[in-house]
Nucleic acid binder design. Structure first.
Length: 366
DNA sequence: AAAGCGGGGTT
DNA sequence: AACCCAGCTTT
């Protein structure tokens, strides 16, 4: 085994953790499934935001086997509102892999762990160290920030070079007697003391060995260079009803908010008239005529990581242009990615982000 | 190496 | 309005 460097800040951080650690339901439970779920839910997400989802998830899918049996629609529905829905789909696939090919036992080594869907370098290290006590690092945004400051790393921590440089130091400083506690100590420390904007150096237990503090460059570290451009997208939305039923569309099985339900919409239309003809064409292909009311009933803006929706919602009434027939018959004749449902059934489906907020414009049916 | 993928709290 | 969060996958 490689010789381990154990600088004095490591036991100091562990001592801080022993006093200040957060009490979290998946912590110190020794259950790799619970740790796995919590780690995936935490990706790019604050702990406070995912906690209620975690509790609900464990009620719905308490074990690997229960989750493996669930449908994709069920897991996405349980994930609704949390974002990055591929996490839910991949978690289900990864768990199925473990049940089918690993005898239901989460792997104990990094190679097998990282082969599971949705499990990357960070999540593998987190699960292995926290659930099994394996000496594996878990390098996330907190760790990159903390080490950049502690060791004066001026490489871009979002780039490959910076991440590799820091990972090498983390591997060198990982205490093999308490790897799980150490990784979690870095998370809690990064969330409470060594925070992104203005680090609380006044209450930091390891300032005496911090490069950024000693050299007075805490305002320069870490270096993060990001270049995401947010594209503006105007969207006209039709809240279209046929009697007590609303017409909904399932987004395609690729791209943003894939396979989630939305009200019929037209992107990038530059006028009401263009939107009206777009919606008329959509429902026309289903056998409906449309009377759209030219009054905006709701206007809202929704920001994603790489685009921004400017939504204008209108009401409309549908007329069936085919032979007079029952609602049940019309429903069966619709393509798979369209449906007519009542307001009271809305809660049974996963809504495409901001479309869920438009449901409040629909009358309550008791 | 860069882009795609959500939503919400903080500054 | 910018920043950033217990990142991973696809291109």
């Amino acid at each position: 085994m490689k010789e381990m460097n154990n600088p004095k800040w490591v036991p100091q951080l562990l001592a801080w953790y022993d006093v200040n650690k957060r009490d979290l339901p998946w912590r110190d439970c020794g259950d790799p499934y619970k740790v796995w779920v919590s780690e995936v839910m935490s990706q790019q997400t604050r702990i406070e935001a995912m906690k209620p989802y975690y509790d609900n998830w464990m009620r719905l899918f308490p074990t690997l086997e229960e989750l493996a049996k669930a449908t994709e629609d069920e897991v996405v529905h349980a994930w609704q509102g949390l974002g990055y829905y591929s996490r839910a789909r991949n978690l289900r696939l990864g768990v199925q892999d473990v049940v089918n090919n690993y005898g239901g036992v989460v792997p104990h080594n990094r190679k097998d762990m990282e082969s599971l869907k949705g499990v990357g370098s960070y999540t593998a290290g987190a699960v292995l160290s926290m659930a099994y006590g394996e000496p594996e690092v878990a390098v996330d945004g907190n760790v990159l920030r903390i080490y950049a400051r502690l060791y004066g790393i001026f490489d871009d921590i979002l780039g490959t070079k910076g991440k590799k440089a820091i990972t090498a130091i983390v591997e060198d400083t990982l205490p093999h007697d308490r790897p799980g506690d150490f990784n979690q100590a870095l998370m809690d420390f990064g969330s409470a003391v060594c925070i992104p904007k203005t680090p609380r150096c006044g209450e930091c237990p390891i300032v005496n060995t911090c490069y950024a503090y000693q050299h007075n460059v805490t305002d320069q570290l870490p270096v993060r260079i990001k270049k995401t451009k947010v594209v503006d997208v105007p969207i006209f939305v039709g809240i279209l009803s046929y009697g007590d039923y609303y017409l909904l569309h399932k987004r395609p099985n690729r791209g943003l908010l894939r396979s989630m339900w939305e009200f019929p919409s037209v992107e990038n239309a530059d006028s009401y008239d263009a939107a009206e003809s777009g919606l008329t064409e959509l429902v026309g292909a289903l056998g409906f005529g449309l009377s759209l009311q030219p009054v905006i009933v709701k206007e809202l803006t929704h920001v994603f990581s790489h685009r921004k929706w400017f939504m204008k919602a209108f009401r409309g009434d549908l007329q069936y242009t085919g032979d007079h027939t029952s609602i049940e018959t019309i429903q069966t004749q619709l393509p798979k990615d369209w449906m007519l449902i009542k307001r009271e059934e809305f809660a049974d489906y996963a809504w495409a982000g901001p479309h869920g907020k438009l449901t409040e414009l629909c009358p309550i049916v008791e």
